[in-house]
């Protein structure tokens, strides 16, 4: 039995890697995607264009503006000299935001009157807008703190000391790259199984998924320098269960599809909600109740908790039990159904 299994494994491996085209599809694109997406898929702002509309000639405004233009998140896109200039920068997307310092700024500040600045943000991408606003607030808070200290003003009665655990510099790559492990493994495994209309075979899909996931984990750790503080066994248990459950769904789809195109459609109807509802890019907690319930059916949801938890936080295996068993159930149910469907179709 074991011997037959090994023979089967070997054959599947060879079949996969002897074909030049499939070898390419399995290795080239995931590598490129990991690299590109690993850098692209980030909510961190980096050199976002900011335009400056400074009507004040004092030193305080210059210092404040220097803090903005000197921040890593922003880069100066230009100076504006009149009100209508704001639209000229924002509308054609030459600047994401405009910092407007009014004429009285330095004077008000030195008179210890509250001075105000205006920040005009392009809301076409409201998420980016919010993040930019956040950055701006942080810069302003720093400015206020140092101004208060400089001028020996009364200290505020309390101060915030914020520390981020697990990811002290709030580098989103640490969040996204482990997510990509799940994403690419899902896409590749699903396509291999769901498009294979003729033969419902679980093994190649599982193998491909395992190889793909291992490869991306290595890339994440050695290329993207994502920390790996947890237990490899805990991660691999997660990978195996995730791949098996994905293959289960893939075979289920392929057992229902009459043509490759239908298989593809089915794969899509599964992959896209999976990516969106898994917490890959947006927190599940922010979704409406009904959608949150729906996410319970998505293996990627559990896998993301495992991969992020194990790599970044070092969550031990026993604490992840609640993530393991739903994937196992999804996998077994789908494999069983798929086997039943295939048999029914064959007969």
């Amino acid at each position: 039995m074991l011997y037959a299994m090994l023979g089967l494994l070997k054959k599947e491996f060879l079949a996969l890697f002897r074909d030049k085209k499939s070898r390419f599809v399995l290795i080239g694109p995931p590598l490129i995607q990991l690299l590109v997406f690993g850098y692209a898929a980030s909510y961190d702002l980096n050199r976002v264009p900011i335009a400056i509309y400074n009507e004040d000639s004092g030193s305080a405004s210059r210092e404040l503006i220097a803090r903005f233009t000197g921040a890593r998140a922003f880069r100066e896109a230009g100076r504006i000299t009149r009100q209508s200039g704001i639209a000229e920068f924002i509308n054609p997307k030459k600047a994401l935001l405009v910092l407007h310092v009014e004429r009285e700024f330095t004077r008000d500040l030195s008179k210890r009157k509250p001075a105000s600045i205006q920040l005009i943000i392009d809301g076409r991408n409201s998420n980016t807008a919010l993040i930019a606003l956040n950055y701006a607030q942080t810069i302003l808070a720093d400015f206020n703190r140092s101004w208060t200290a400089q001028q020996r003003l009364e200290k505020p009665s309390a101060r915030l000391e914020i520390r981020a655990w697990f990811n002290p510099n709030l580098n989103s790559q640490w969040f996204i790259v482990p997510g990509i492990i799940g994403l690419l493994t899902l896409v590749v495994t699903m396509l291999v199984t769901a498009l294979e209309v003729l033969i419902g075979k679980a093994l190649p899909g599982v193998l491909i998924g395992l190889v793909e996931a291992s490869f991306i984990v290595l890339m994440a750790v050695y290329w993207f320098q994502v920390p790996f503080v947890g237990d490899v066994a805990a991660l691999y248990l997660g990978i195996i269960l995730f791949v098996v459950s994905t293959v289960g769904v893939g075979l289920m789809i392929s057992s229902l599809a009459a043509t490759q195109q239908q298989g593809l459609l089915g794969a899509f109807l599964f992959i896209v909600p999976s990516i969106i509802l898994s917490g890959f890019a947006t927190p599940i907690a922010n979704m409406p109740e009904a959608m949150q319930t729906l996410t319970l059916l998505i293996p990627l949801r559990y896998f993301l908790v495992i991969v992020r938890g194990v790599m970044l936080e070092g969550i031990p295996l026993p604490l992840l039990a609640d993530q393991y068993w739903p994937m196992a159930v999804i996998g077994l149910v789908n494999l069983g159904l798929a086997a039943w469907m295939f048999r029914r179709r064959l007969y």
Binding site: Y43, A141, A158, L160, E161, N167, L170, W174, F175
Partner: peptide, 26 residues
């Protein structure tokens, strides 16, 4: 009149959410 420290720890795993949460806290 002393500045009392408020210790905030955010879960940095999801950097975006962490940033939003600290922004809201500010």
């Amino acid at each position: 009149g002393q500045s009392a420290p408020i210790n905030v720890v955010v879960d940095g795993v999801d950097a975006n959410t962490a940033r939003l949460v600290s922004g809201y806290l500010q």
